[in-house]
Design a protein around this nucleic acid. Structure first.
Length: 288
DNA sequence: CGGATTGTTCTTCC
DNA sequence: CGGAAGAACAATCC
């Protein structure tokens, strides 16, 4: 489940390889992944090159050197971007689904971009929710504007965070997951941020105290920054652009930790429930 | 074989 | 009309 730290890790890993490399061939094996359609998609990419690669929330935005188009790339739940050097060598990561990464391309490789220097970029996606979409500058701007306040940006002040948070009603977890309110958090980091703040994910926004809002704000910044430092979290399908695992898995306090003793209070085991249709983890003793 | 997995969008309801 | 909540989507594992 690539969230902000995972997408940022992929972006940083791809940057030095990808930028400025001429695209020689684009093979799309699953037409629904790309838009507008395969022929237009290939025509605009072939002979072109990526001028840069930016990120907004969990969305990657690759501007092309020639023409006005950018490519919007979303990995959704199981998308992977894997870079293979001209030598064909790839650092293989420990992948929980061996078949997924074993050979490239494989049956989950829906887009294969070949470069003039012999390198290749694979887009693998088991569940096929991800997409590559050609977008005009207007469409890029529209896509960017749909995303809310983002951790680790200048705008992510306590005041802005508090204002955005309390602009909504309902369950804390739902609001933190809402990409139009805050961008970049997903199921893993929302649970971790709530643990950090000692607030239960099921709390209603109206009941949060200023102290709790302050801790949630700090948690978003601390945890996202730490997760980026650790190159993201590997749960199931995530690997970075070279196929490596993310190390933040070793720092998870609640996500997928149900049944384990809480590392903060040592008084209770982490429990798992369902909230907003999502698996939700917290310590019943030290989260209120 | 039903249930769980989850990011986003769509649908429904108030 | 807008927000809140839940369903839907897809492939695979358990």
């Amino acid at each position: 489940m690539p969230e902000l730290p995972e997408v940022e890790t992929i972006r940083r890993g791809l940057l030095p390889h990808l930028i400025g490399q001429t695209i020689s061939e684009v093979e799309v094996r699953k037409s629904k992944i790309v838009s507008p359609d395969i022929s237009a998609f290939s025509r605009i990419l072939e002979g072109n090159a990526f001028a840069d690669l930016q990120r907004r929330g969990k969305l990657l935005i690759g501007r092309l050197e020639q023409g006005e188009y950018s490519v919007l790339i979303h990995l959704k739940m199981t998308g992977q971007l894997i870079w293979r050097d001209p030598s064909g060598e790839q650092v293989a990561g420990g992948h929980p689904w061996p078949e997924y990464n074993a050979e490239l391309p494989n049956k989950y490789s829906h887009i294969i971009v070949s470069f003039a220097n012999g390198a290749r970029l694979f887009f693998n996606d088991l569940r096929q929710f991800g997409f590559w979409k050609l977008a005009t500058p207007e469409e890029v701007a529209a896509a960017r504007s749909r995303y809310g306040l983002e951790p680790l940006t200048e705008e992510f002040t306590l005041e802005n965070f508090s204002h955005r948070l309390t602009s909504r009603k309902g369950i804390l977890k739902s609001v933190l997951l809402n990409q139009e309110i805050f961008s970049g958090l997903g199921n893993i980091y929302v649970d971790e941020v709530c643990f950090y703040a000692q607030v239960r994910p099921e709390r209603r926004i109206e009941t949060l105290t200023p102290e709790e809002i302050g801790r949630l704000h700090a948690g978003c910044q601390t945890i996202i920054a730490h997760a980026i430092e650790q190159r993201g979290t590997t749960v199931e399908s995530f690997t970075d652009a070279s196929g490596q695992r993310g190390n933040y898995s070793d720092f998870l306090q609640v996500y997928k930790q149900e049944g384990k003793l809480c590392q903060r209070c040592g008084q209770a085991k982490i429990v798992k429930t369902k909230l907003a249709g999502r698996g939700t983890h917290y310590c019943p003793n030290c989260q209120y």
